[in-house]
């Protein structure tokens, strides 16, 4: 049972509380953690809210974007400089949830949630983390796989904004709004001289966490970005994926449609 909910205004105080408590958790927007607390015995004794830490905000310098950890999905979606990524944010939950949900919290969402994490994975985002031993940086791929230590706080995310022609995002849901992904595809594909020069393709709904599909990426490089070569490359997805069954779709179904959705995301048909 909770015996303490702190709302510190100083990062060091937050880190100290986390390090010193028996069973603590970071509370950001609360849209994942509070349902847990409301509906089962979590064993947590302490919550450390990030709300007053001044970690919200977006800065853009050239193409480099830095987003503070507690920036809400709503604020992200409203920033015109990030308009290219607005469809990612708008595919997540509903406005009242987006008014609460934070960017960093999305990195820790269990599949099939974590749509922003899928996009950040395709963008090779870097995660800034503060801990008792100081600051560190880690690629988002490492954070979605291993998380952070219990006494660490994600403070910001950075990535390069793609240009319009090289960015692809498609989330397939059972409803048009407010539903978890059957499959979510985010990709940055750069074409030069008529062939793919580099491809980073990330999927949601394809495994226990957001994942990249290096086999598909490698098969696409050097080929034209058309239906034929994308179909051939997408067929290699199984080496990298572990599709699962949940209330939205079966593993069998996801396995059937993952290559289809990769193709639709990249070439539209």
């Amino acid at each position: 049972m909770l015996d303490r909910v702190d709302v510190p205004s100083d990062l060091n105080a937050a880190l100290e509380t986390l390090a010193g408590c028996r069973a603590g958790a970071i509370l950001s927007g609360g849209t994942l953690l509070m349902p847990e607390i409301n509906t089962r015995a979590t064993g947590l004794t302490t919550l450390v809210s990030l709300k007053k830490l001044d970690l919200a905000g977006i800065s853009v310098s050239g193409t480099r974007v830095t987003i503070g950890a507690t920036t809400t999905l709503d604020a992200f979606g409203r920033d015109e400089r990030l308009a290219l990524l607005k469809p990612v944010v708008e595919s997540i939950a509903s406005p009242p949830v987006r008014n609460m949900a934070s960017v960093a919290g999305n990195l820790f969402a269990a599949q099939p949630y974590g749509d922003l994490a899928v996009a950040l994975l395709a963008l090779d985002a870097e995660v800034e983390i503060a801990g008792p031993k100081g600051k560190r940086q880690a690629p988002v791929s490492e954070i979605v796989k291993k998380g952070v230590a219990a006494d660490e706080i994600v403070t910001a995310l950075t990535f390069d904004l793609p240009d319009g022609g090289s960015w692809f995002y498609a989330k397939t849901m059972r409803r048009n709004t407010n539903s978890a992904a059957i499959v979510c595809v985010a990709a940055r594909v750069q074409v030069e001289g008529g062939v793919v020069k580099s491809a980073s393709i990330a999927l949601g709904g394809a495994g226990p966490r957001p994942l990249r599909v290096p086999s598909v990426e490698a098969a696409l490089v050097g080929k034209p970005l058309d239906a034929e070569s994308v179909t051939a490359a997408a067929a290699k997805f199984e080496a990298d994926c572990e599709p699962f069954t949940d209330a939205y779709a079966s593993a069998w179904y996801r396995t059937r449609v993952i290559p289809v959705h990769i193709r639709r995301a990249l070439v539209g048909a």
Binding site: V5, G30, T31, L47, S49, A93, P96, M100
Partner: peptide, 24 residues
């Protein structure tokens, strides 16, 4: 957070009151 019945407006934004510890 999935039904919306507890929605209220906090500082101008619609939010879910069941997911907000009062201290925050």
């Amino acid at each position: 957070g999935s039904c919306g019945a507890c929605s209220v407006v906090v500082d101008g934004k619609a939010v879910r009151s069941c997911l907000i510890p009062a201290e925050t």
